[in-house]
């Protein structure tokens, strides 16, 4: 219901008549408080020093990864078997620097946490929260608007960066992307945004939970570090401890491998990297173990986009579920909370 309302509002916002006549008066009249907050959030982010710093880091690393993939590009193209040259721009590296995909998977959480960790508690600490909440807006409007504001900012950044990398790539390698490559790139960007959305939700959750912005930032970074560094170690330990013997029945081995894989899929970054590698490397046909029987008769060909998407569907669902879970918790915490001034 709300969604459809919002959609019609967006549609009416982009009404052609307004664009032509430049008539904005009656457009503003219908502007809901929600969009007013979103607008303010976005302008706040673009003005903030924090955003400049985060952007600086992201742009620099992306340029670095582009450079590293370009220096090695001719070698990669010569050795590759499929025709998706353009996508290699995002995944190859000369070894000195990680690829674009790895960078995004590394910086995405930083962006999400960095832009969301003080969403609510900074308003509370500066005394603006009780003033805003005493305006005729629903409580969820505030957290929704905060979330959407950052998401819009991140989307703009990711698309801009992606297109920038594409443009430079086009300039240097001279091969235009095919339609499918372009679509795969769009899907990749959307998944990246979804990935950031998860971390953003987590950060907003902490910002509601913890009164101190620094505590909430640390909590966010803590979770991120745990998943990127320690969780892998723990899974490794478990894997080693439960490994079947060399001579075990193949079924046991497969069960064991699925178990380890399932453990790893609890990590959002694993879901993300699975999803993006599948999308950017069309030759990936499975994310789990395949038996010889399954491989028999298969032609070693890249699979179409639809099939790739089907392959990463569980990963996508997992990421959406994680994001929704964080959001639901935030909602539960914030909706019935007492809003005191300071």
């Amino acid at each position: 219901m709300k969604m459809s309302k919002a959609l019609t509002r967006i549609k009416s916002g982009f009404n052609l008549r307004h664009l032509i006549t430049g008539q904005t008066a009656d457009l503003q009249k219908v502007k809901q408080p929600f969009w007013v907050i979103v607008e303010k959030e976005i302008s706040d982010h673009f003005r903030s020093v924090r955003f400049m710093i985060l952007m600086g880091i992201v742009v620099l690393t992306c340029m670095g990864s582009l450079y590293s993939s370009l220096t090695n590009f001719s070698e990669v193209v010569k050795n590759s078997e499929d025709e998706f040259f353009f996508l290699k721009l995002f995944t190859t590296t000369d070894g000195a620097m990680p690829s674009f995909v790895v960078f995004i998977s590394f910086l995405g959480p930083l962006l999400g946490i960095g832009l969301g960790f003080d969403a609510i508690n900074s308003e509370q600490n500066s005394g603006t929260l009780s003033r805003i909440m005493s305006q005729p807006i629903h409580r969820d409007n505030l957290i929704n608007a905060k979330f959407l504001g950052v998401l819009i900012v991140v989307s703009i950044v990711f698309f801009a960066l992606g297109f920038l990398v594409m443009g430079f790539g086009l300039f240097f390698i001279g091969i235009p992307p095919t339609a499918e490559e372009f679509l795969r790139f769009i899907c990749f960007t959307l998944i990246s945004i979804l990935y950031v959305a998860f971390w953003l939700n987590l950060a907003i959750l902490f910002s509601v939970k913890f009164r101190q912005a620094s505590t909430s930032a640390l909590a966010g970074i803590g979770v991120w570090l745990f998943f990127t560094v320690f969780y892998g170690l723990i899974v490794n330990l478990i894997a080693k401890a439960t490994a079947p013997s060399q001579f075990a029945h193949p079924e046991v081995v497969i069960r064991y491998q699925t178990f380890v894989k399932n453990l790893m899929t609890l990590v959002p970054s694993q879901l993300y990297s699975d999803a993006t590698t599948t999308l950017l490397m069309p030759s990936v046909r499975s994310l789990g173990p395949l038996t010889m029987e399954q491989m028999a008769g298969a032609i070693p060909n890249p699979i179409p986009l639809g099939q790739s998407l089907l392959l990463v569907w569980p990963q996508l669902t997992g990421m959406i579920a994680a994001a929704v879970l964080c959001f639901a918790l935030t909602y539960g915490l914030f909706m019935r909370r007492e809003i005191r001034s300071k």
């Binding site: 003005r47 500066s126 005394g127 603006t128 005729p136 001034s341």
Partner: peptide, 20 residues
């Protein structure tokens, strides 16, 4: 609450503004 807040202006004890 939203209907009430349309009609009521509230000045909190420690009020804050967006400083920038």
């Amino acid at each position: 609450p939203v209907e009430v807040k349309k009609k009521v202006g509230y000045l909190p004890e420690n009020l804050g503004f967006y400083d920038d």
